[in-house]
């Protein structure tokens, strides 16, 4: 754990803006998953009171980023005055644009894919002139098409580009769950020493999946314990974020989770 102040925050959920503003002493930063609505009356205050982190979909790093996507990211980065930008380690759209799952989904971990990610991440970082953090994404089903392990892919990506690792603890728990591995053993295979941001979140069961998956819910105590275990192995971490962005999120969930996170990670 580094000596400098570590930000603790959440995602900006506009329907909870009043509560978020009232919790300004508790919440340091807000991650922005969507641009603010033009008629959002709270956004000017939100922008003044909190550090804002760009955590929107910019473009998948598997493919070259088109100019309009770079320009949109540049405008958002300036609007938020974001200290770094985040993208996901995902590949969700076919190269011809015909098929898009419109949901986070990881790439195959191959040498060719790694080369593509490195090239496109460098273009993005140069265009925005800001550091990049990339979040790992779990895979629900077995795909025996990888050439390298996920941890190797991520480490090589971060070491080559200089980007930071955004570890999502719920994603890690799910990846371990569907691989049948103990979560701490799986976490140890990831480049925690290069992590600059930590997401805490919960999971819930889905009937379509016959099991748990990502959900905008509060983390369990077990999940926070796992986050604390990882956090102690992340010397470069700069922010811890409650990752929940949904109109389903109820009042109270954000301040309660930020407070629990602060206590569990000794960031009070």
């Amino acid at each position: 754990m580094p000596a400098t102040k570590i930000l603790v925050g959440a995602f900006y959920n506009p329907h909870l803006a009043e509560e978020t503003l009232a919790s300004a002493g508790l919440i340091d930063h807000l991650a922005m998953a969507d641009p603010p609505e033009k008629n959002d009356p709270y956004f000017p205050q939100i922008r003044e009171r909190f550090v804002l982190l760009l955590h929107d979909y910019i473009h998948q790093l598997a493919d070259p980023i088109p100019p309009h996507a770079l320009e949109r990211a540049r405008q958002l980065a300036e609007l938020y005055r974001t200290p770094w930008v985040a993208e996901h380690c995902q590949c969700v759209m076919t190269q011809d644009g015909r098929f898009n799952v419109d949901y986070v989904f990881p790439p195959l971990y191959t040498r060719d894919m790694l080369r593509r990610y490195v090239e496109n991440a460098q273009v993005l970082m140069n265009a925005l002139d800001r550091p990049l953090a990339m979040e790992q994404i779990p895979r629900y089903f077995r795909a025996d098409l990888d050439e390298m392990r996920e941890g190797e892919f991520l480490r090589e990506f971060f070491e080559t580009t200089g980007a930071g690792f955004l570890l999502d603890i719920a994603h890690a728990w799910l990846e371990a769950h569907y691989r049948g591995k103990p979560p701490r053993e799986y976490l140890a295979s990831l480049p925690l020493d290069l992590a600059t941001e930590l997401h805490v979140a919960g999971v819930t069961d889905y009937s379509d999946l016959d099991g748990p998956w990502i959900a905008p819910v509060e983390p369990s105590d077990e999940m926070l314990d796992l986050a604390a275990w990882a956090f102690d192995r992340m010397p470069k971490v700069r922010a811890v974020t409650f990752d929940a962005f949904s109109t389903l999120l109820q009042p109270g969930a954000i301040p309660r989770t930020v407070e629990r996170t602060r206590k569990r990670l000794n960031l009070v």
């Binding site: 590949c91 190269q95 098929f99 799952v101 894919m113 795909a143 098409l145």
Partner: peptide
């Protein structure tokens, strides 16, 4: 087929019932 093309096959399997 390279791995990017293989990824496209997986994405189509997911998106195209």
């Amino acid at each position: 087929m390279n791995s990017r093309q293989a990824q496209d096959v997986i994405l189509r399997l997911l998106a195209d019932g």
